[in-house]
Simulated assay, not measured.
Amino acid sequence: MTDLCASVLETRGVLSLTGDDRVRFLQGLVTNNVERVTAEHGIYAALLTPQGKFLFDLFVLPHGEGWLLDSEAARLEDLRARLKKFKLRSQVDLTVGDGWSIAAAWGDGVCAAFGLPNVAGAARALGGAEAGVAVVDPRLPEAGVRLVLPAETAGAWLEGHGARLVPPEAYDRHRLALGLPDGARDLVVEKTTALEGGFEDLHGVDFQKGCYMGQELTARTKYRGLLKRRLMPVSVDGPVPEPGTPLRTEVGKDAGEMRSGLVLEDGGGLGLAIVRLEAFAEGGSLHAGESRITPHRPDWMVLPEPATAD
């Protein structure tokens, strides 16, 4: 029997974006090409400051005649307010979707279980306008399937489709092992850049689309080779440090900072940290307080080639 796990992610919420101008409206704001959103495809993107620093992550998912934006529940009103500043005369409507829950499902055969191909971003409606949508995680198919479901019946619906409900911490362990960020828990608001957060490697930036907010810094960082730090999965030997705890090399040099993490059953820890690439290239463990931190490069992550002497 397939061990299919699913969690309802209470830290995520939904904005509904409808209206004839939604493509033009969102296209000039976020890092990815929203023209790629169709009834069969969803995308991952970021909203940045004009200076190119992280504000929000979001999944743009098809839903009937509009879109659902999957983002951080605690910051939905802030996201809506920021987007509305750019509405002007655009024919769009932004509302908080109080009746929806975000869920994640993963495990062997997860895509087939929800009638989806194993292709990043592949999406399908789960019925009528009230039934929700399922999408293969646009960042990485190994992450599983994200679902927007009616809040009152989400758990029962998942169990009815063969999933075993597990706590959100189980999904955290899954995403941390893959090196996938979760909004402001891992990406520092108004500080982390899109490329530091992995948005390019995770299919969240389109360098061929037109202008968007923060494009100049994002493009300059890529084409001038200015990337110095990356968000990376780390293993922890010792207590899991609080987010924001500085990382140091063996000789005390700044090596980055800890982001989200959790304690494993064997007493070790797993997390994400923003790591200076110079420190990572040197190899060896880093330190955060009394804990030893070892960063890892996941298979999907592309790092700059080390500089060579002339």
Rank of each mutant, 00 (worst) to 15 (best):
residue 138 P to V: 05
residue 161 H to C: 11
residue 205 V to Y: 05
residue 169 E to Q: 12
residue 204 G to E: 03
residue 184 A to G: 15
residue 160 G to A: 06
residue 129 A to N: 13
residue 136 V to I: 11
residue 197 G to K: 00
residue 179 G to M: 09
residue 195 L to Q: 06
residue 199 F to W: 10
residue 151 A to F: 08
residue 147 L to W: 06
residue 142 E to K: 13
residue 144 G to P: 01
residue 150 P to Y: 10
residue 153 T to S: 15
residue 148 V to M: 08
residue 181 P to S: 06
residue 146 R to K: 15
residue 189 V to K: 15
residue 164 R to L: 13
residue 162 G to M: 03
residue 195 L to T: 02
residue 156 A to S: 12
residue 197 G to Q: 03
residue 176 L to R: 09
residue 204 G to H: 07
residue 192 T to M: 11
residue 148 V to S: 12
residue 151 A to M: 03
residue 194 A to G: 10
residue 149 L to D: 11
residue 196 E to S: 08
residue 131 A to F: 05
residue 165 L to F: 01
residue 139 R to D: 11
residue 165 L to A: 08
residue 130 E to K: 13
residue 166 V to I: 11
residue 156 A to E: 15
residue 128 G to C: 07
residue 130 E to L: 09
residue 191 K to D: 15
residue 197 G to W: 03
residue 161 H to V: 01
residue 165 L to E: 00
residue 141 P to F: 02
residue 127 G to V: 09
residue 132 G to W: 14
residue 127 G to A: 07
residue 188 V to E: 15
residue 153 T to N: 03
residue 194 A to M: 02
residue 154 A to T: 07
residue 190 E to V: 07
residue 171 Y to G: 05
residue 180 L to I: 09
residue 186 D to K: 15
residue 189 V to A: 14
residue 191 K to N: 06
residue 142 E to G: 15
residue 171 Y to M: 11
residue 157 W to T: 05
residue 186 D to C: 11
residue 146 R to Y: 14
residue 146 R to F: 12
residue 146 R to W: 15
residue 196 E to P: 00
residue 200 E to N: 04
residue 176 L to S: 04
residue 192 T to Y: 12
residue 146 R to H: 13
residue 145 V to Q: 08
residue 181 P to L: 03
residue 127 G to W: 04
residue 143 A to M: 06
residue 146 R to A: 03
residue 176 L to G: 06
residue 133 V to D: 11
residue 196 E to G: 00
residue 155 G to Y: 00
residue 180 L to D: 01
residue 162 G to D: 01
residue 200 E to V: 11
residue 183 G to F: 14
residue 174 H to N: 06
residue 203 H to D: 13
residue 170 A to I: 10
residue 142 E to W: 00
residue 167 P to Q: 03
residue 194 A to T: 05
residue 178 L to G: 14
residue 148 V to P: 01
residue 170 A to G: 06
residue 188 V to L: 13
residue 143 A to H: 12
residue 180 L to T: 12
residue 193 T to K: 02
residue 128 G to R: 05
residue 145 V to N: 09
residue 193 T to S: 12
residue 134 A to D: 11
residue 190 E to S: 14
residue 179 G to W: 01
residue 203 H to S: 15
residue 136 V to A: 13
residue 162 G to N: 05
residue 144 G to V: 06
residue 155 G to W: 04
residue 168 P to A: 15
residue 151 A to Q: 10
residue 163 A to H: 05
residue 129 A to C: 00
